[in-house]
């Protein structure tokens, strides 16, 4: 949503899930969208907010060996997954299979407070926004304030890369 509002012209969104009520404490959906595919709802919400953002929807579950495929022709890959096992596999696969592609990832988004611990580290093409001391969301809460801080930090880095400020 932040990228669309900032004027990014094309987003490739990959997801296979439906909106659940438990997503609403942090993700950009509404009560009347519960039960519907996230892809469709996200497109609807972006189109209600801004003009001129093309949204390519890819309805697939990310699985090892094929998860890099939808991202062949994008400028930047954004990791926005919840389970850490998928997260690590996704980052590893994108960096191995699309070595020239910048990827912006987040780690440690669970919890409340500690905003000042969030740091930006760069490892070659991997741009990581992380709270190094955060616990896993498996034993902590996920809530809009911190999740959105990370998401918007990621979006801000994406803009820098797109504008080659930090390329």
């Amino acid at each position: 949503m932040a990228l669309a509002r900032a004027g990014v012209g094309r987003l490739v969104v990959v997801d296979f899930d439906n909106v659940e009520e438990s997503n609403l404490n942090r993700q950009y959906y509404f009560l009347d969208q519960v039960g519907r595919p996230k892809l469709e709802c996200l497109r609807e919400n972006i189109e209600r907010a801004v003009r001129g953002c093309q949204i390519d929807m890819v309805d697939m579950k990310l699985e090892r060996g094929s998860m890099f495929r939808p991202f062949g022709d994008v400028d930047v890959v954004v990791e926005a997954l919840d389970r850490a096992s998928t997260k690590a596999a996704f980052i590893e696969e994108v960096m191995l299979r699309l070595p020239e592609k910048p990827i912006v990832a987040a780690s440690g988004v669970a919890g409340i407070g500690a905003s000042e611990r969030i740091v930006y580290s760069r490892y070659g093409k991997l741009h990581l926004i992380e709270d190094p001391e955060a616990r896993s969301s498996d034993d902590d809460v996920l809530l809009a304030p911190k999740v959105c801080l990370f998401a918007h930090y990621q979006a801000n880095v994406v803009l820098e890369i797109l504008l080659e400020v930090n390329g």
Partner: peptide
Amino acid sequence: IAKSAFSSTPIEDGSSVDVIHLTSGG
């Protein structure tokens, strides 16, 4: 280094290794 190659990849003297930890949630 792919995770599947961790046990077969030797580390040469003078290497610089980054171990990036990832915590779930999003």
